[in-house]
Computed example of a mutant assay.
Amino acid sequence: MRLDKFLKVSRVIKRRTLAKEVCDTGNVMVNGRAAKAGLEVKPGDRVELNFGTRKLIFEILEIKETMPAKEAASLYKIIAQ
């Protein structure tokens, strides 16, 4: 699954267009490397997201095409905020 779509489905970022912008400005790293929106992510990948003054580090646990909002947080595990 594309990184920008995962960020949207998991509700880490609410809109896919915003997720794409954040990725393309270099504020997202996957497994220690700068990541663009089209990067294919998989379970086990570690994502660092710098969003303004906030930094979020999480590990992807599973990938699903769609997910109810209440269950979206089960797709990843937060390592640090």
Rank of each mutant, 00 (worst) to 15 (best):
R46K: 14
I63F: 01
L7T: 07
K20E: 14
E59T: 02
T66S: 15
L56H: 03
E65G: 09
D24Y: 04
I13C: 02
M67V: 15
R54E: 09
R16V: 08
N31L: 03
I78M: 04
K8S: 06
Q81V: 12
A72C: 08
R54T: 14
L18F: 11
K77N: 05
K55H: 13
V41R: 09
E71S: 12
A80G: 07
T17C: 07
S10F: 00
S74H: 10
L3A: 10
A69F: 12
I60G: 01
K64Y: 03
K42V: 05
G38L: 03
V28D: 00
A35C: 07
G32I: 12
F51P: 04
K20F: 08
L39N: 11
V30H: 00
N31I: 07
G26F: 08
F6D: 00
K70H: 13
P68S: 09
K8I: 03
L39D: 10
G26R: 08
C23V: 00
G52H: 04
I13S: 02
N27H: 08
M1Y: 09
G32N: 13
M67I: 15
K70E: 10
T25N: 05
M1E: 09
R15F: 11
R46M: 07
F51I: 14
K8F: 05
D4V: 00
S74A: 13
I57G: 01
D24K: 05
L61W: 04
T17M: 11
D24V: 02
G26P: 08
C23I: 01
K14V: 10
E21H: 06
K5V: 01
F51R: 14
K70N: 09
R16G: 09
I13N: 03
M1K: 12
N27T: 03
E21I: 03
L75Y: 00
G26T: 11
N50M: 09
M1Q: 12
L7P: 07
R16A: 10
N27W: 02
D45A: 07
G32R: 13
K36I: 07
V28K: 00
R11D: 14
E21C: 05
G52Q: 06
L49I: 14
G26M: 10
M29C: 11
G38K: 08
E21F: 09
V41S: 11
L61S: 04
G38P: 01
R11A: 14
M29W: 05
R54Q: 11
F6Y: 10
V47A: 07
T25R: 06
F51S: 08
K64G: 06
I79C: 04
K20L: 09
K14I: 08
T66H: 14
